[in-house]
Design a protein around this nucleic acid. Structure first.
Length: 496
RNA sequence: GGGCCGCUAGCUCAAUUGGCAGAGCAACUGACUCUUAAUCAGUAGGUUUCGGGUUCGAGUCCCGGGCGGCUCACCA
């Protein structure tokens, strides 16, 4: 018998013994008048106002049990925090005494008694009665080091959360980030909507989708890779401001900044342009950072990032000239830009088109310098098929991306609303791909979303749109270097 | 997909040139009326990630598999 089986057997034996004494180890209800935090607050109130201690009932998980002869000290944790139980064994009922004898770390118990302070000042419940609420059969990780094993932390996040309280704090903050964004948008005339996850074609971004099958319809569906095209349909339909916070799925590599499923917030505002959206991003993100992290200035890795508005604005073309020494406007096609990059000794994949080459220059030379929040503005049309041209400039679109901590955190543009132009851009993408420009990735979107073009034909007002990667924003606010630390159950291969 | 690294008791970690697999916590038995990483005495606990190989002898060396981490590639 293995050790863990033996421990489980010991605890199962205790279970049998409890039942034989007529005690239900998994009772349906418990007596609870205060959370642990409320009980501690009550103690302070008693002390300040010299009120007689009153009887309270608390409940929680046993996380430490110090047995000192005729006394016992138990640390009890619930969602609000910890409180100590101070037990004088001679004052316990027989049932409580028997339970105390068989108590294991990890068990849930309830305790009743007066809120007091021990001689060393520790807020405690002077417990006269304890009852079992749920028996634990698995040994917990040790209290000093917690659970360190990364794989186990992700696979069994519930154990991680029990053993490492700081992990809980990350996910509390994540929840506040989402709530903060939602309430900001709600108060700025945006309507929260839900659009399909399962789609006949996956558009709105260029990424390899997951494919699944619907049995009754006998057809394949794609899991969405972006929210964009459906939300813009709703602008066509006459909602002047819409947003969605939802999961999107991309069948790509996994690393510290990418999980196959992640959370995007996209919002669209009719009668707005990318300058309006830039103000919105600056305002919304800095507000959320201050609310959740407590300051506009937050630590991230070795740096302090300052989200105080206004953020720096950098022209993309100028940034690439400054950092890479290449003015891509002077190289209007793929071949000439590739030749220039080759001449400068820059390595790149020869099958890439001009937009991707510019993206290479951006991510290699510019992105690593973008620590403080920065707007990169005015993107080349080659890498922006859904954005509207700058007036009088056939090569540049009204688009920006927001960077912080050397990561892209937001992407926005004045939405292209000319249906013919949109169809040409889609067709251009398709022909690029069929010419083998991206032959290795031809499983990417290979169909045009015809209905989206039709929607634009009905007329979409001038519209500003935005996408924000929620996971990366949470990484920044919680100072985490891996996206898995801000996703409760990150994608892992099944073991065995 | 490539490169590098890791996997030893439930948890956190040791183990010298290839030479008897160990400690702390957790568990079990006992002592203890103010502990909070309680303390003290004792007990038990191992397919060293899996499968091969070399060797008198493998946690350690070699080959292959699994899972994970970092990194590169990929990633509008």
């Amino acid at each position: 018998m293995s050790l863990v089986e033996r421990i489980a057997q010991q605890r199962l034996d205790k279970l049998t013994e409890l039942r034989s004494r007529g005690i239900d180890p998994y009772p349906p209800r418990c007596k609870r008048s205060h959370t642990n935090a409320e009980a501690v607050a009550l103690l302070l109130k008693q002390e300040q106002e010299s009120i007689e201690p009153v009887e309270v009932s608390v409940a929680g998980r046993v996380i430490a049990n110090r047995d000192i002869g005729k006394l016992a000290f138990i640390n009890l944790a619930d969602g609000s925090g910890k409180i100590q139980l101070f037990i004088n064994k001679s004052l316990l009922s027989p049932d409580s005494s028997a339970l105390l004898k068989d108590l294991d770390i990890g068990d849930f118990i309830g305790a009743s008694g007066k809120v007091i302070r021990t001689r060393t000042g520790e807020p405690s419940i002077g417990a006269g009665e304890i009852t079992l609420l749920s028996k634990s059969l698995q040994p917990l990780p040790e209290k000093w080091h917690g659970l360190q094993d990364t794989e186990k932390r992700y696979r069994q996040r519930y154990v991680d959360l029990i053993a490492n309280p700081e992990v809980k704090e990350i996910f509390r903050k994540r929840s506040r980030v989402v709530t903060g964004i939602r309430s900001y948008l709600d108060s700025h005339d945006f309507l929260e909507v839900e659009t399909p996850v399962l789609q006949p074609s996956a558009g709105g971004a260029l990424a390899r989708p997951f494919i699944t099958h619907h049995n009754a319809l006998d057809c394949d569906f794609y899991l969405r890779i972006a929210l964009e095209l459906h939300l813009k349909r709703l602008i066509v339909g006459g909602f002047d401001g819409v947003y969605e916070i939802g999961r999107v799925f991309r069948n790509e590599g996994i690393d510290t900044k990418h999980n196959p499923e992640f959370t995007m917030m996209e919002c669209y505002k009719a009668y707005a342009d990318y300058n309006d959206i830039m103000r919105l991003v600056e305002n919304m993100i800095s507000t959320v950072v201050k609310d959740v992290a407590g300051d506009y200035k937050i630590p991230f890795g070795d740096d302090i990032l300052d989200f105080t508005p206004p953020w720096k604005r950098i022209d993309l073309r100028q940034a690439v000239i400054d950092m890479a020494g290449i003015d891509y406007d002077k190289f209007p096609d793929t071949a000439s830009l590739a030749a220039e990059m080759r001449g400068k000794g820059i390595q790149f994949d020869p099958s890439r088109d001009r937009g991707r080459l510019i993206d290479d220059l951006l991510s290699t030379f510019v992105e690593p310098t973008l620590k403080n929040p920065t707007f990169m503005v005015n993107y080349p049309i080659d890498m922006s098929p859904l954005a509207k041209n700058r007036p009088g400039d056939a090569h540049t679109v009204e688009r920006f991306e927001a960077y912080a901590g050397c990561m892209e955190i937001a992407n926005a543009f004045s939405e292209l609303n000319d249906p013919e132009e949109q169809e040409r851009r889609f067709a251009g993408q398709l022909s690029n791909r069929s010419q083998g420009a991206c032959s290795a990735r031809d499983e990417e979107t290979e169909t045009i979303d015809e209905d989206f073009i039709t929607a634009l034909e009905y007329g979409m007002p001038p519209t500003g749109g935005l996408g924000v990667g929620i996971d990366r924003l949470v990484m920044l606010i919680t100072n985490q270097q891996s996206i898995r630390e801000v996703i409760l159950f990150p994608a892992l291969k099944e073991k065995e």
